[in-house]
């Protein structure tokens, strides 16, 4: 079996190393597929559904599906773009995202995606759920209003015995991500910072660190999400 696979994305011929997921294979070819719950180095769990592509007629998540020979992937197709846009809007109306007052504004991937998709007003009614802020831990604040339930923190942050510090609780539209009462109190500075960095939105905040980088010089203040991938020059083999 060859080490490389050939496939197309929206008709463009692509090639990538075998054994990786579609998102990463696309990235190797300078093509951006939007992601949100995916995080480099962490096992994927297709929960946000934003990276949905159509492969040979079927919808699949690009962050969880391994690339295979001969795949015909549809990415920037009208109905798929519209679907992704809807999903960003859904996440906005599900929680309470008041970006102007948010510590993560400018570094927030949800906000950045909204800009990329040119969202002005979501098509869905705001749900304005009543959610709490958990500030009981010495190092971090868990701001439930902004949690998009992407599970990044759950998957990426564990203690040395492999125990979860963040976990889902309940199911259905009542699901929430909570912090372990005991392990949350024992969080090291390092893990606390990692948790904040892993969270795509402003739901995990290290206390007293919210504004270390001033607004205006944050990651997405100057460049659109995904542009780093698209602007890379690819040498075609």
């Amino acid at each position: 079996m060859s080490q490389f696979v050939r496939f197309t994305i929206d008709g463009t011929e692509c090639m990538a190393a075998r054994g990786q997921y579609i998102v990463d294979a696309a990235r190797e070819n300078g093509i951006y597929i939007p992601t949100l719950c995916n995080y480099p180095g962490v096992k994927p769990k297709g929960s946000c559904r934003i990276c949905t592509v159509r492969v040979n007629g079927r919808l699949m998540t690009a962050c969880t599906t391994p690339i295979a020979d001969g795949m015909a992937i549809e990415n920037e197709i009208h109905d798929i773009v519209e679907l992704r846009k809807s999903i960003v809007e859904l996440l906005f109306v599900e929680g309470n995202h008041f970006c102007p007052g948010c510590e993560k504004s400018g570094n927030c991937e949800l906000q950045a995606l909204a800009y990329r998709f040119k969202i002005m007003v979501p098509r869905f009614p705001f749900q304005f759920p009543l959610r709490k802020i958990d500030a009981s831990h010495p190092k971090i604040i868990k701001e439930q209003n902004r949690c998009i339930l992407c599970k990044r923190c759950i998957r990426a942050i564990r203690d040395e015995k492999g125990r979860s510090i963040f976990a889902y609780r309940r199911r259905s539209n009542r699901v929430e991500v909570v912090v372990d009462p005991k392990l949350g109190k024992q969080l090291t500075d390092e893990l606390a910072q990692k948790a904040m960095d892993v969270c795509p939105v402003g739901s995990i905040l290290v206390k007293e660190k919210g504004f270390i980088t001033p607004i205006g010089s944050r990651k997405y203040d100057h460049e659109a999400i995904g542009s780093d991938i698209e602007n890379v020059q690819i040498t075609k083999i």
Binding site: S47, V93, E94, L149, Y168, N173
Partner: peptide, 18 residues
């Protein structure tokens, strides 16, 4: 369906309620 969703996909967690 709202009650029985596992709640992990954004779509299935939010749309049925709407």
């Amino acid at each position: 369906f709202i009650e029985e969703s596992c709640g992990s996909c954004s779509t299935c967690r939010i749309v049925p309620t709407l």
